[in-house]
Design a protein around this nucleic acid. Structure first.
Length: 492
RNA sequence: GGCGUGAUAGCCAAGCGGCUAGGCAGAGGACUGCAAAUCCUUCUAGAGCGGUUCGACUCCGCUUCACGCCUCCA
């Protein structure tokens, strides 16, 4: 499979060619652990998860690094207000973050380096920048990067800084930088930092925000690596500054492909902490929405398009997911039903009445898939390869469901068809992470006993008894539905 | 002001210079002791004005509107 991705620097969709064949290095900007992340933040992490899964789906061996920013103005302020050490304070939100990742079925990264565990690496990098003459210490004791001394500055964001390079001395209460565009590499300690400080050649203080990502990405992925991603709002200044720091120090190209996802909106505006129009994952879970439903909404839109968050979308996701689950149940039943051997073999040999076209290429559960599932898998793969076109990928999944349902309705679906459909769905789900039916809740013995009793009553056409048992089961919190294949219960 | 992105059916959301996107809702049908659910079918859109073309939702230009970034932000 040849993956192609839109690159924020070239502003084009380009084939993804990893530096080392068969391997990919991915750095994704993680959370600042000062609060619960909101679902706008999670849009980025879900997008990165789809990228992570797509790279592995394409057969690449992946090293995925996601940083945790556990020292900055907000974490320091928060810890002081809470009367906790920085470590204790950020621990709580780190734990919450990982819990949220699990709720959204986000695959773990290979490593989650925290900024406070990499201060020596950052100091080393700053030292190298001094050696190259692009860093300077200002009167306030802080160390800054001189943007004017890095010729490529602005190449990612396509911003023109020529008007800012006149060396105008800027000074106000907080900063003593040479130029407005200069950014802090090392922030000198001040009273508001309380006990938070590290020693450095430039005096006590703490790292600037941008330096951690340059230092940690290069530590774990090398001085040049394949992919670096984040929300679009990280593009400038954060990622621009990372490039400046890394390339000024090493003289090598930092990152090959930059990818950024668009914002989640609420009523047409960006969801953000500062606007106050956000929902945390916890808010939505508390309202009864599942992580899977939330993930569906986030994955079903293309990552480069703004997505307006709405509860209608969650409701639509719920219905669409139960349709997928019903399909899975239907296929599982058909797949496990005993079928005449000849029919199964015909399906395997590709002479099945519903198979058409050339012999199937993909192996599913040891059997060649009937070609009708193959068509949808090919459409799916094309969609993912084309800059992670998840809306189109979902269309392929639903086309598969539709065709499988039609076969089932005609009574024409063989166990091999059903098994192939399930295998295809499972394969698609390796990228999307929402299609497969979660393990259903175990039915308590008491409910099962009533179900058995009711099945007997129904067999005897004892409708009064059947209805009475249905309400008894309902009183225990389970809803019974009579399908063509028998009773089905679900928790209500 | 600079740099971008977008406008698609009731709602959400893709591709594509001619060939059914998909989901949700709605409508019709099938199934059914009743419920509920499920399945099938179906509704056929592309801001406005020009241009290119045999042919434009798709390419080009302009207009209108919306959103983002321009040193906290996923």
């Amino acid at each position: 499979m040849q993956l192609s991705f839109y690159d924020s620097m070239s502003r084009r969709v380009e084939p993804f060619v990893p530096l080392a064949p068969g391997r990919a290095g991915l750095y994704t900007c993680g959370p600042t652990v000062y609060n619960y992340a909101h679902i706008g933040n999670f849009r980025a992490y879900v997008f990165e998860d789809v990228l992570h899964r797509a790279l592995e789906y394409a057969g690449l061996s992946l090293v995925h690094v996601m940083n945790l920013t556990d020292v900055d103005d907000k974490t320091i302020r928060g810890s002081r207000e809470a009367g906790l050490s920085l470590r204790e304070y950020t621990r709580k939100y780190k734990d919450a973050f990982f819990e949220d990742l699990r709720a959204l079925s986000i695959e773990p990264a290979s490593v989650y380096p925290a900024a406070t565990d990499h201060i020596p690496e950052m100091i080393d990098l700053i030292r190298r920048l001094f050696d190259k003459g692009v860093a300077y210490q200002a009167a306030d004791g802080s160390v800054y990067f001189s943007v004017a001394k890095f010729p490529g500055y602005g190449k990612l964001a396509h911003l023109d800084f020529s008007g800012m390079r006149s060396g105008v001395r800027i000074s106000n209460d907080e900063y003593a930088k040479d130029a407005v565009g200069d950014f802090a590499l090392w922030k000198a300690w001040d009273e508001a930092d309380g006990p938070v400080k590290w020693d450095s050649p430039w005096g006590p203080g703490r790292p600037g925000w941008h330096i951690e990502c340059s230092a940690m990405s290069m530590k774990y992925l090398g001085e040049s690596f394949d992919l670096h991603t984040g929300g679009i709002d990280n593009l400038f200044p954060h990622h621009e500054n990372e490039i400046a720091q890394a390339e000024a120090a090493t003289g090598k190209p930092f990152v090959r492909h930059w990818m950024h996802c668009a914002h989640l909106r609420v009523n047409g505006e960006k969801m953000s902490k500062s606007l106050g129009n956000f929902f945390t994952l916890r808010d939505l879970l508390a309202k009864g929405w599942s992580g899977r439903e939330i993930r569906y909404v986030l994955v079903a839109a293309h990552y480069r398009q703004p997505l307006n968050f709405a509860f209608d979308a969650l409701a639509a996701a719920r219905t669409a997911l139960s349709r997928l689950d019903d399909f899975s149940v239907r296929m599982e039943r058909i797949a496990s039903a005993s079928a005449p051997a000849a029919q199964t073999e015909a399906a395997i040999a590709g002479t099945h009445p519903h198979s058409s076209g050339p012999a199937p290429a993909v192996q599913t559960a040891g059997l060649s898939a009937p070609s009708w599932t193959e068509r949808h898998l090919e459409a799916f793969d094309r969609a993912i390869c084309d800059d992670l076109n998840t809306p189109l990928a979902f269309a392929a999944a639903f086309s598969l469901v539709n065709e499988g349902n039609r076969l089932a309705q005609d009574g024409a679906a063989t166990p091999a068809d059903a098994a192939a459909a399930l295998a295809a769905l499972a394969r698609m789900d390796r990228v999307l992470g929402v299609l497969s039916r979660p393990a259903s809740e175990a039915v308590p013995p008491r409910v099962q006993a009533l179900l058995d009793e009711r099945a007997a009553a129904r067999a005897a056409k004892d409708w009064a008894g059947s209805d009475r048992l249905r309400s008894e089961i309902a009183a225990l919190g389970w809803a019974v539905k009579d399908t063509r294949e028998g009773q089905r219960v679900s928790k209500c």
